[in-house]
């Protein structure tokens, strides 16, 4: 456990010794803030209209579901840039040799690196807590769905990471790692679009394989075990393949 933390701490710090950590977090904050502002404005306009007829959509459905939906799309584009350096840079700087010849296991190295990028995403999500707090200061808001949305977002973005870390382990070129990561995440995101056309059996499979379908329940305030199992296995497979890739790098 100490080894994992040693690796994670070093990697997390190194995000913030170069501009990349600050740039990513700042961009993320600007975009989500703009989005939240626009969604909030639209909701206020609509609720004024709805007031004439009686009941309107609730605050979570009207504001936070779309905000979280958009946040996940942004994360899709951001996460590959967080994970791209994890192994690619170690290879380029020849520091992977230091890690491999240290008395720690490959699994500890991978978990440590993975943890560091999870921490970066947590650092990105932390400021977004302001939005529910702002709404809560003037209206009543249910905490439950907000909590599950955050949980879902975290699971979803860690799934992105498991793909990104895999490509980072495959190459020593960060740009290639990011590009491949981005394409694969998009693939697993959009695969459900073809589900309708694919017929009953394959349609179900494609629907199930899609990253985004499993987020639906979380965004509505439901924690469902199958969705959690899906994300955990997705992450597990990604990290397993990363482990295989790095091991084969040693054998070559």
């Amino acid at each position: 456990m100490r080894n994992i933390w040693t690796i994670a701490k070093r990697d997390f710090k190194s995000y913030f010794t170069s501009p990349i950590g600050y740039i990513i977090i700042a961009l993320f904050m600007v975009i989500t803030a703009k989005m939240f502002n626009a969604t909030l404005g639209a909701y206020i306009d609509r609720s004024a209209m709805f007031q004439a007829y009686g009941k309107g959509p609730n605050i979570h459905e009207g504001i936070f579901r779309p905000v979280f939906g958009n946040m996940n799309v942004i994360l899709l584009f951001v996460v590959p840039f967080i994970t791209m350096r994890l192994f690619a840079e170690e290879k380029k700087q020849h520091t992977l040799e230091l890690l491999i010849t240290a008395p720690i296991t490959m699994l500890e190295i991978i978990f440590g690196k993975f943890l560091s990028s999870v921490l970066v995403v947590l650092a990105m999500l932390l400021p977004t807590l302001v939005y529910p707090l702002v709404v809560m200061s003037t209206a009543s808001l249910e905490i439950g769905p907000i909590f599950t949305s955050y949980l879902g977002t975290l699971l979803l973005s860690t799934s992105y990471m498991s793909l990104g870390i895999l490509y980072s382990a495959m190459t020593d070129n960060q740009i290639i790692a990011a590009a491949l990561g981005l394409f694969s995440i998009l693939f697993f995101w959009l695969i459900s679009w073809g589900a309708q056309a694919a017929g009953p059996v394959w349609g179900d499979v494609m629907q199930y394989a899609s990253l985004i379908t499993h987020f639906e329940n979380f965004s509505q305030g439901v924690i469902s075990t199958p969705d959690i199992i899906y994300y955990i296995s997705f992450i597990g497979i990604g990290l397993f393949l990363t482990h295989r890739t790095l091991d084969s790098y040693r054998w070559r």
């Binding site: 070093r10 190194s14 010794t17 700087q93 020849h94 520091t95 040799e97 010849t101």
Partner: peptide
Amino acid sequence: NVGFLPENPPVYTEM
């Protein structure tokens, strides 16, 4: 029990 200095010193330039 081993200390290793590879061909290229494995140093992190940002540390």
